[in-house]
Design a protein around this nucleic acid. Structure first.
Length: 974
RNA sequence: GCCGAAGUGGCGGAAUGGCAGACGCGCCGGACUCAAAAUCCGGUGCCCGCAAGGGCGUGUGGGUUCAAGUCCCACCUUCGGUACCA
């Protein structure tokens, strides 16, 4: 039995609960019940589940200064309903809440005002918590945590130490302790320092000097995922690429498992597709194009040396690492090798300098420098036309030995594949564009299907065909379908030691450090030499000395360089001496994603100071049974958390392969629908069909002429619908735009939950958010809709309460007698419907079923108490405050939170007769009453006996009669 | 461009291949009221008709089926994501 019930059990409700208050007044009853639940710890979850467990998790919020938004309670209400329902079904429910409290806004606020981020954060958390509690969610607040708590980030740092201590064993496809990493003999011979550097190069957490996305406006480096089209995701500031020492996490090692394990998860296919897309696994081949160690004046490989190379390769095998004599390329289309007419290197490719002929040196140097300084924004802007430069050198195509020119172009990315490609302009759109630009040969090697529209052009080298077909111009390989050819040529290349099958991912390693103050410090110390410079060696802060706390800073201002703010920390924090060796602390901090990667584990054992979680507790509660949150986290958060979870699994700290068994994304809530009209300068109306709103500057302009027009919000009563669109009543030729926009401060359409609760009550807000439509859909807000569900709650109240009485008393229609057969049928249909709808999270329809119940019983002047009680229990997960109040009024002295969920009785809903539609040629023509169990011939006869049907059948031939017993009858006639 | 989701009354939306529009909002009518609000009762897809009834109807065009909002093919529109990943 759940603890809350023991606490509340048998104890009479405080007398204050029976206030004089005949009208439904959420402003009084909601705070009262919230206090009751809190005082009695009604929703405290047991340490270990008793009976079946159910772990329901919300994506915890970032407590922003703006407070709660109506989008937050949508998911939270859904999870709350699930939890309250499950408790009534006898499950041990885990339902915690906490705060994703590190984050840039608090730090930026600190820069502006000098208020320490911790102070701002605590204030914001207090606001969020008040707002969540005002909505009556059944969280176990004893488990509350914030990622900024030292007791929490102590374990975030501890997990980092595990990542640091782990290498990925490709053969076993799992992470293993670094101590088990096989060290090559030559490294071992080179001494202890060499071994340490070798290990450092294989850890899941490693440092890299790679170019990063530096955003001067935000004063920080951003992850690739945080840069969209060359601008920062947050605030849309320009981003430039500069080199900086960074911490990286080797998530790419887990790419295969992250993709494969999606299969068993109960997530929507579209979210899985999003993740698969992001991981971007592709299969193809790596192929070596011979260039020789050094070319003659012609820039071409020496034929004799090339032949010798081929023989050597044929006798040996394809080397793991390419030597200096070849360009290794990656392709997904090895079947088009005969059509490879040139090779392209990324500007950052290590062979660029070596392969550049003297006469091309200036052009190449200029091009590469330009590419290096190009921001991502520039690259995106220039995406339309291809740029590149010829090196002057050639490589040998391994399948036909022909020399092909080597180019450099920034459409080839250094960070993907091998940083070099073979270009097949006839069958790759980008290569085609490039070849056209620079007049390079285009050789078709795939024949499209005979009926393809542009086949002739493709075969003439005038159009690109990226699809599958049959090989041509491919020597002895002609006439083979694409898929088969890929396999054959890959196998043949492998035999000759010139290629091998290969897999690539779009997913990159995770840039894991930020130049922030307000983040988790790394538990890392950098060794310093005598002059105070880093030696490149480091040591970890031992686990039992964690957490590494943040120092007190006096100033938070950005100093305009990528140096982290922690570099300005007091020396006492910054420098450490151990055994006579001086160290400097790592001054980068972890990104906001870190804390959210594992919070679902800590909730289960939030006070444990010996381990991040007690393994027995972990085993008992994991995995999360339902996880609900916004689709904006569909890729990053969920991928990162899954990655950490898998590492913890490999290292034996968790027992499940995946953390979140079922995932649901709630849809966005938009502002109220707005009608927008357009007026020209003179004030005369312009039809929306003549206005272009999606121009570069976002200002609406006339499609013809391009003059700016002003937008006017039009009240609904001046508008009517004509055909597909809304028009002005007075001027029906003037079309208006009707649509709901994303809530934003600038548009002024933000709905504040505090206002809604004040005017309608928390139960109304909860109910409305669920009644709007399917949980996963994007839906526009409507205050009239809130008023509508409030009307339902008022009606439910009056169905049970005598509103005209002086004090709180039952409606006289509520009687202690058995329900009639029909009343009982309605009740059990409601039980059945609500229960089924809850199971498929169709809360909107479950509410409409409760409305139907209320509509029916409202008309009854005798309302059996038992039916009313069952109704209150069904309503409880949705509108818990009202339900508790009515439950108490119906004479119960303890909370209904653990009352058994109403049981559906199939007998009760059985009817003697059923009304059956009768169709003729598929059109509804009549309805007939038949006994419930009627068989097909009986139904057919009953249909024929109907006067109207008989009339319509008279003189016609019945070709066929389709009868679905219990459902319908259809006559097919001639 | 590619990937994903969605197009149903005036609006939000409902419908295991089997009575399209449940439920709610809005609107119309009635009751109560001096009146209004609140509340209660009834009606409400569109067109024709006094009515009985009939016709049309789930983005568009085809198809499968006795029967299609639902399944298949092609397309249009909107929203979300993504962008030279070879």
């Amino acid at each position: 039995m759940a603890p809350a019930r023991l606490v509340a059990g048998g104890r009479p409700l405080p007398s204050s609960l029976h206030t004089l208050m005949p009208r439904y007044n959420p402003a009084v009853i909601e705070p009262k019940w919230q206090r009751f639940w809190s005082e009695h710890r009604t929703f405290a979850a047991p340490r270990m589940p008793a009976g079946p467990k159910y772990y329901v998790l919300d994506m915890f919020p970032y407590p922003s200064g703006d407070g709660l938004h109506v989008g937050h309670p949508e998911g939270y209400t859904a999870t709350d309903i699930i939890c309250r329902h499950r408790r009534m079904c006898g499950h041990s429910v885990m339902h915690p809440m906490g705060w994703d409290a590190f984050g840039l806004p608090a730090e930026q606020h600190a820069k502006r005002t000098g208020t320490p981020p911790r102070v701002t954060t605590e204030k914001n958390i207090a606001t969020f918590k008040r707002q969540l509690q005002m909505l009556g969610f059944s969280y176990d607040w004893d488990r509350e945590l914030a990622t900024t708590d030292p007791d929490y980030f102590r374990w975030t740092q501890w997990i980092f130490l595990q990542l640091f201590d782990t290498w990925f064993d490709r053969d076993q496809q799992r992470g293993r302790p670094i101590a088990e990493l096989p060290v090559p003999e030559d490294v071992r011979q080179a001494g202890e320092e060499a071994v340490r550097r070798f290990q450092d190069a294989h850890r899941l957490a490693y440092q890299s000097e790679a170019p990063v996305n530096w955003c001067p406006a935000l004063g920080t480096v951003l992850a690739n995922e945080e840069v969209i089209g060359g601008l920062s995701e947050r605030g849309s500031h320009p981003v430039v690429r500069i080199p900086l020492r960074q911490w990286m996490l080797r998530i790419t090692a887990y790419a295969d498992r992250l993709e494969k394990d999606l299969e068993g998860l109960d997530w929507s296919e579209s979210i899985k597709a999003l993740q698969r897309n992001w991981i971007g696994r592709s299969t193809g081949a790596e192929v070596d194009f011979y260039v020789g160690h050094d070319q003659g004046p012609s820039g071409r490989p020496h034929p004799g040396e090339f032949k010798e190379w081929r023989n050597q390769r044929a006798a040996g095998s394809f080397p793991d690492k390419p030597g200096d004599d070849v360009i290794r390329i990656y392709t997904t289309r090895p079947d088009t090798l005969f059509g490879a007419t040139y090779v392209v290197l990324a500007p950052e490719h290590r062979f660029v300098a070596r392969l550049t002929r003297p006469e091309q040196a200036d052009a190449v140097k200029a091009y590469c420098e330009q590419a290096q300084h190009k921001s991502d924004l520039d690259r995106t802007d220039l995406a339309r036309s291809k740029t590149g430069v010829f090196t002057g050198s050639f490589a040998a195509n391994p399948v036909n030995q022909r020399p092909v020119p080597i180019w450099i172009a920034d459409y080839v990315l250094a960070s993907y594949g091998t940083g070099a490609i073979m270009a097949v302009p006839a069958h790759d759109t980008r290569d085609f564009e490039f070849a056209r630009q620079f007049n390079l040969p285009i050789v078709p090697v795939v024949d499209p299907a005979a009926d393809a529209a542009d086949r002739a052009q493709v075969l003439a080298g005038e159009a690109v065909f990226p699809g599958d077909g049959v090989s041509i111009n491919s020597s002895s390989y002609d006439g083979i379908p694409t898929a088969e050819f890929k396999q054959r040529i890959t196998a043949d290349l492998a035999d000759r030691g010139q290629g091998r099958e290969a897999v690539n991912y779009k997913l990159r390693d995770w840039l894991f450090s930020r130049q922030h103050f307000w983040g988790e410090p790394f538990p890392i110390l950098h060794e310093l030499d005598a002059s105070g410079n880093r030696t490149g060696l480091m040591r970890t802060v031992p686990a039992d000395e964690l957490p590494v706390n943040l120092p007190e800073l006096e100033k938070f201002e950005s100093h305009g360089s990528p140096e982290p703010p922690l570099d300005q920390a007091p020396e006492s924090w910054l420098y450490v001496t151990i055994d006579g060796q001086r160290y400097k602390r790592e001054t980068n901090t972890m990104p906001q994603w870190a804390g959210s990667c594992w919070y679902y584990l800590r909730y289960l054992d939030p006070k444990n100071d010996k381990a991040l979680i007690d393994p027995a507790v972990e085993k008992a509660w994991m995995p999360v049974d339902v996880y609900i949150g916004g689709a904006e986290h569909a890729v990053l958060h969920l991928l990162y958390a899954r990655f950490w979870h898998k590492v913890l699994y490999d290292r034996g700290y968790v027992s499940t392969v995946e953390p979140f068994q079922k995932l649901v994304n709630q849809g966005m809530i938009l502002g109220e629908v707005e009608l927008t009209g357009y007026q020209a300068e003179g004030g005369e109306w312009v039809s929306a069909s003549a206005v272009n709103t999606s121009d570069d500057d976002g200002k609406p302009r006339l499609k013809l002429g391009g003059e700016e027009v002003i937008t006017v919000k039009v009240p609904f009563d001046q508008v009517t619908k004509s055909g597909e669109s809304f028009v002005l009543k007075d001027q029906p030729e003037i079309r208006l735009e009707s649509r709901a926009y994303k809530m934003s401060k600038s548009r002024g359409n933000v709905v504040n939950p505090d206002t809604v609760v004040r005017e309608y009550g928390a139960d109304s807000l909860r109910l409305y958010e669920m009644f709007m439509g399917p949980l996963e859909a994007t839906k526009p807000w409507s205050m009239e809709g809130v008023n509508g569900v409030r009307g339902f709650l008022d009606r439910a109240w009056r169905m049970i309460v005598n509103e005209r009485a002086e004090g709180l008393e039952l409606n006289a229609a509520v009687v202690d007698e058995a329900p009639t057969v029909e009343q009982n049928r309605i009740l059990h249909k409601t039980i059945q419907g609500v229960t089924q709808d809850f199971e498929r999270m169709a809360f909107n329809t479950s509410i409409s079923k409760l409305m139907e119940f209320t509509n029916y019983f409202f008309k009854c002047d005798r309302r059996p108490r038992a039916a009313m009680e069952q109704f209150v229990l069904l309503l409880a997960p949705l509108a818990p405050h009202l339900a508790e109040e009515l439950w108490a009024l119906l004479g119960h002295e303890i909370t209904l939170a653990y009352e058994p969920w109403p049981r559906f009785d199939p007998e009760a809903v059985r009817e003697d007769t059923a009304e059956i539609p009768v169709q003729i040629n598929g059109k509804l023509r009549a309805r007939v009453e038949v006994p419930t169990g009627a068989d097909a011939p009986a139904m057919e006869q009953a249909a024929k006996d109907d006067v109207r049907i008989a009339e319509l059948l008279a003189g016609k031939t019945v070709v066929k009669c389709v009868v679905v017993p219990g459902r319908m009858v259809n006559f097919v006639i001639k």
